[in-house]
Design a protein around this nucleic acid. Sequence first.
DNA 1: TTGTAGGCGTTATCAA
DNA 2: TTGATAACGCCTACAA
Lengths: 336, 336
Amino acid sequence: MSQHRIMGKPATVHDVARVSGVSTATVSRVFTGKTDTVAPKTIERVRSAANELGYTPSEIGRSLRLATTRVVVMIVPDATNNFCADVAASVEKSLKAVGLSMVLANTGEDGDQQDRLLTDAAGLRPHAIIIHGAIDTPKLREVIEKNRNLVFVSRPPPIAKAPFVGIDNEAAGFAVGRYFAEHGYQDCAVIHGQQHYSASRLRLKGFLRALQESGADMDVIRKIESPLSMEAGYQHGLALLSDDKPRAVFCHNDMLAYGVHRAATEKGLRIPENLAIFGFDDNRINDWLAPWLTTLKVPALDFGPAVAAMLDPNRKTRKPMEDVVLPFSLTIRESA
Amino acid sequence: MSQHRIMGKPATVHDVARVSGVSTATVSRVFTGKTDTVAPKTIERVRSAANELGYTPSEIGRSLRLATTRVVVMIVPDATNNFCADVAASVEKSLKAVGLSMVLANTGEDGDQQDRLLTDAAGLRPHAIIIHGAIDTPKLREVIEKNRNLVFVSRPPPIAKAPFVGIDNEAAGFAVGRYFAEHGYQDCAVIHGQQHYSASRLRLKGFLRALQESGADMDVIRKIESPLSMEAGYQHGLALLSDDKPRAVFCHNDMLAYGVHRAATEKGLRIPENLAIFGFDDNRINDWLAPWLTTLKVPALDFGPAVAAMLDPNRKTRKPMEDVVLPFSLTIRESA
DNA sequence: TTGTAGGCGTTATCAA
DNA sequence: TTGATAACGCCTACAA
């Protein structure tokens, strides 16, 4: 346990080489696993010297030399959103399993912030960039054109030149619309995300198509574009229940639904008799804190394995990555 | 918009130097902001060449040269926990504001996993390591001895050689204990985290001391060591309510409280008449989904600024970082 | 089986 | 005001 350096600069290959009496090349061989061309006794000497020095190979030097890193940048709209957090945790875990580290950054649903993060990310020369909830900007399109390892999560890319992992948003919207039609929710409202988000657009499109195709006399009395937060759901809920008095509301994520639910409760409405509420995502927390919420389940924890399979540095094939469409399902509880 | 390279290797200082007809040194000067020694016309030439080439300086090269990175590794127990997610988001935002990137990794409350992450982190030669909810292991102590830039969040370090950001856990436990005494919750139970977590130990210690000092005939009929999850809270809640039938439960985080609440509800108990429930953290989601929960509020969003102030690369002083003790408060709702 | 040497992209130093 | 150069830590082709 002799400590050659306390609080000093980290040991390098040279230090290990010196202490173990071999060349830096041999030290490198040991640490890159090319041990079939190194004598067992030498390996032992190197290992023990490294141990003594507390040596860990520098990813910096390694990355520079190999012109590739093991870092993946993940850009998310809001890591404190339940669904986002689950997806991010799932991705981080799966990436780690194939030897990659994840750098996390939040856009706060701000296009400028996203663009800034894309620039910063480029500086890290990451192995890949994962964008959860991309915002369509010129910078984004430029990055799509230039980067090979770019994966879109949840919201499909604005141009079909990068792979996507997520559900079929239009089909999901359609499923909810059909459910509304079947249950006779004639006068309904939709609270959706901004229309320059592909996912929001598609969900809405599918939903409206289902209503139309149902033949029933369905009427969407309000379409509200909104941030996807509890606070926004609450405010829109209050307004909606004063003015339009819909029979049902389709919220484009569960956070919105929580807010609407609170607004409805405060107004003394009964769910679902007076107002049906339909959410989206099925946050894991629902089982515990919102066991009343009917919603569309997106398999958040299945994102990681799908993404990691695409980005695995050990992947042999060189053919381009293909979209992964995950299955969704309806979680029917009492609110609709 | 002439595109010199499509999908090729990223441009380097050399490329920019060549295109703009200057030396790499000058290009570097422009990008490091040492523009007072560069002619305005030259700056313009360099900027335009860089723009044309889509050049972003490589953090890899930069880090190697300067022997320092702008990456901070944050190790958390579980990023999908509401409180953790808020703290992590707060830290990420504040770090970004001082020019640092955050790498996030989950331990899942597993000591071995934490140790593995500490080793991996060392490879990145990060500017700092932040540990939220550290687990006391030999490896951890070794890292504390060796690393200067190490910050403990929420749970204090096992040896007082690294700075801490968080609340005074013992005082917090004491405050809850006093509340229990004042409200005459004679027969009570505690569900706490593992005792090798400093925070759990301190909270429990303060709580018990408050009961003792109260003079009232307080009796802790059960102390349960448990993972801090909803599921665990539910299971322990079911058992507790069948056997010991306490008058009140102090849960060491809100997740546990959610689980206990559900168990109590299923058993037909009335809260707080039959059972008082006290949580810990005051997750932001409580206002919306658990507006009944009485709990101890920890200011999750204040962690980021405190941590970033310590780790700011522009910090002038070289004196060691000092602990930041954040204020807590009781959020009294109806459950206790 | 092992060693030598060059270069990855950057910036600081020194010289011009 | 600008340029040439060395060095940061690592890996690998080539030589021994």
